[in-house]
Design a protein around this nucleic acid. Sequence first.
DNA 1: CTGAAAGCGCTTACAG
DNA 2: CTGAAAGCGCTTACAG
Lengths: 346, 346
Amino acid sequence: MTQSTGGGRPRTRRVTLADVARRAGVDKAVVSRVVNDDPLLNIRPETRARVTAALKELDYRPNVAARSLRTARAGTIGLFIPDFANPVYAEIITGAETAAAERGCALMVGSSTAGGGGAQSYLDLLGQGRVDGLLLAGGTIADEEQATLADRGLPWLFVNRRGPEAGRHVILDDVLGARMAVDHLLDLGHRRIAHVGGPAGADTAHRRRDGYATALRRVGVEEDPRLVVQGSYGPEGGAQAARRLLDDPEPPTALFVANVTSAIGVLSALRARGITVPGEMSVIAVHDLPLAEHLIPPLTTVRMPLRALGARATRLLLSVPADHPVEEIVREPIELVVRQSTARPG
Amino acid sequence: MTQSTGGGRPRTRRVTLADVARRAGVDKAVVSRVVNDDPLLNIRPETRARVTAALKELDYRPNVAARSLRTARAGTIGLFIPDFANPVYAEIITGAETAAAERGCALMVGSSTAGGGGAQSYLDLLGQGRVDGLLLAGGTIADEEQATLADRGLPWLFVNRRGPEAGRHVILDDVLGARMAVDHLLDLGHRRIAHVGGPAGADTAHRRRDGYATALRRVGVEEDPRLVVQGSYGPEGGAQAARRLLDDPEPPTALFVANVTSAIGVLSALRARGITVPGEMSVIAVHDLPLAEHLIPPLTTVRMPLRALGARATRLLLSVPADHPVEEIVREPIELVVRQSTARPG
DNA sequence: CTGAAAGCGCTTACAG
DNA sequence: CTGAAAGCGCTTACAG
């Protein structure tokens, strides 16, 4: 039907199973089984050789639409992230891409904000059979949407956040990561340690704040509510939070920042106020990115296993039935990366 | 066939056109035409109402696999970027997502590096009919691969880079952007201006270097080859390049950096050497990101219309036949964003 | 104004 | 050991 493009140049017609079968002198069912490595196929070596040769000569590639229609599987999973500009998600994507490729699956990455569709768009993907499962990283999702997801009977998983209720998520040990950061400050001798937290709705922000509180409690330091300021996961929120903390009559000597992106703003705000780091203020943040080493001063961070998170989530999505609960904390090591933004209190 | 998931919970069977047709008491051909807004369809209002109602009641969603198989169109375009961690691409993605959604198209974003597949993976996408067209942003592609792309007769486009030969690309006016940056430094009175360039293979790096040379030539400043250093599009490459320039017996008074990410490293290297910005050295970079404002000092940049680039590329991909040449420079305004990293020479 | 039918390219039980 | 056939869910000329 479509022998040529609109532009006129003849398009090489798609090679189908039937073409290969004709060339190899077998039925297309045989070719299909060869292509899919059917273990039940008992084929004479010379026949297989003919098929393999024809496959190669014609450069056959299965039509995914036909295959999906027949098998009711798309061979694709979707990953939705709130923002492509946040490099933290880049690591998760990389992990997911690798794991999906291992399983012969394509990964479709989308952002929940852009594209106009918003929250509805990924539900559509599932409904249309475009993907076999959905990974939802960050962002927010209404209870109603979650119910719809469950109804469809297709697998989906929250990544790096817990859902409003049901247990289908895989997360990192943010409590531990936060504790490691605060412990580092405590070990250096700091006692008046403030927390530049994440945004109100974020599940990770909540858990990191928990870790902060736990670490202080363990050494008998009483938490001062004035020292906990809600920020955002961006530079601007970090800068605002830092300015607020500096206005305190009894300012802290160290800051535990919930996110490295936020720390960029924290450092710039401190600098604007003429406060030296780490001389007058120590700063540590969650997540290690390549740029952390090039901030001024080079930033001490806690490196979280983001890539492992993406990979693990993908594997669970592809292996655990849609109606089974999944509540996993990725246990890959969390690492303290000491650079030059932390020191003993002046 | 698949009435229940592996886990046992009954899955609500997919609603098909036949289901809707039965409920509305019409043929499925009619439903199909209603769903697709067939302008040739002449239908009695009450019939249409029945169909519309059935559609809604059953929450019908067309199966994309069946539709693709029938129409030989995937309704999806692919966008390949070299690295998800580079926020510059985030802007391009956002533009592409929006434009694709406008056309009722899904966007499949992938990275050419990860996933193991490498350069071959997007060729597979085309071959399998998974996408109707391909946007290739950055990265490198062999001549042979380009030939394969052309053979397939499917549309593809280089984004933000030109191909090895044939004219199928949409790019920004990097020459102008670079000239604007260097002109700003010249206007401030600088004459010994160095260039921290991009990586050797990058087409954008080449064009920005051209703009640098042109700007100098225009005011009669002779270019000193020692002041042009090849970097990378990352902090580390920027830091190395900056150190090299500082070792020059006759160091520059200003740096034009090919990329904002690279500039992060430049600023950190200058600081490590105790050189003040902008007091002893002015710094300006291409691309404006939110973090530019929070660098130390806040970085003067040239903002390029990256989002418009993504959108324009998507629209061209979907409208220009595969065998027509496309060579477009996006003409949206380029903007100089003056912050605190540039000043008159000390 | 609406319906019947063919067919897109696969996979998979089943027959021989 | 290999082939014939049915059918996944759509769309689209065509018939009436």
